[in-house]
């Protein structure tokens, strides 16, 4: 087995007094698409934030590409190739689409997967809106913009936090297509999802998190077969099971 690209060992993290992560351990190998599934408040976003360094773990280690990055500041982790697309999108509203993309290109570090020009080919909608300010984009377009912005920088590992959250079903399709396309480029992806079906559709391997601890690890077939995990930790009821 190849060395993992990312590994978390017994990571604890808290916001002030509230202890959110209580010993999370997981691994992501190069080229994999892995999902982290859990209910609201289970610690999914906090895990991502600990990986990218917005939040410093209180205990445990985060290893990326063979290097202990647990206590590196966030911008230095990004320079090493960890790209984080947060749930609340965070395009710069007063900058144009083009300027937003250029912001992704300014960091020091290696080449991106795409140049700004190439990324417009992947996201043709963005080219049409090149000189408009990001605040005029729809929710789906903003999501595309933020993913595109991450990809113009060096991307070894892409962390996506509920990329389809709050989007219309047709737009969700587009976003999933884009994720497929990115994985075909060989980008390693860690995807956070609340919706277990979306996770199973996109990722090969899954972790289930509940109350700050990993309670399940396995491939799609294993997750599909494990009704107990689905009911107990994901709140998937029998009647809501099939779409």
């Amino acid at each position: 087995m190849t060395d993992p690209l990312l590994s978390l060992e017994d990571v604890h993290a808290s916001y002030g007094e509230s202890h959110i992560l209580r010993g999370v351990s997981m691994e992501v190998s190069p080229g994999e698409v892995v999902s982290l599934v859990g209910r609201n408040g289970a610690g999914k976003t906090t895990t991502l934030r600990s990986i990218v360094g917005v939040l410093e773990p209180t205990r445990g280690t985060v290893t990326f590409d063979g290097e202990d990055v647990t206590h590196l500041p966030d911008h230095e982790r990004v320079q090493r190739g960890i790209q984080y697309v947060p749930e609340d999108r965070q395009a710069f509203p007063d900058l144009t689409v083009d300027e937003n993309l250029r912001m992704g290109d300014l960091r020091s570090g290696g080449e991106g997967i795409y140049t700004v020009d190439e990324v417009y080919d992947v996201f043709p909608r963005l080219r049409e809106r090149q000189s408009q300010s990001a605040s005029h984009l729809s929710g789906g377009e903003q999501q595309m913009l933020v993913i595109a912005r991450a990809l113009v920088g060096e991307t070894e590992l892409l962390l996506l936090d509920e990329p389809s959250e709050g989007l219309a079903p047709q737009i969700v399709r587009d976003v999933l297509d884009v994720i497929d396309r990115i994985r075909d480029e060989g980008v390693t992806i860690l995807l956070v999802e609340q919706n277990v079906h979306a996770a199973m559709e996109t990722a090969d391997r899954h972790y289930v998190i509940d109350r700050g601890q990993i309670v399940f690890e396995g491939d799609t077939a294993a997750l599909e077969g494990d009704r107990e995990v689905q009911e107990k930790h994901l709140g998937v009821g029998a009647t809501l099971d099939e779409p």
Binding site: P86, R107, G109
Partner: peptide
Amino acid sequence: TVRLLGID
């Protein structure tokens, strides 16, 4: 967000 784009 600027920090999350790798800029100090």
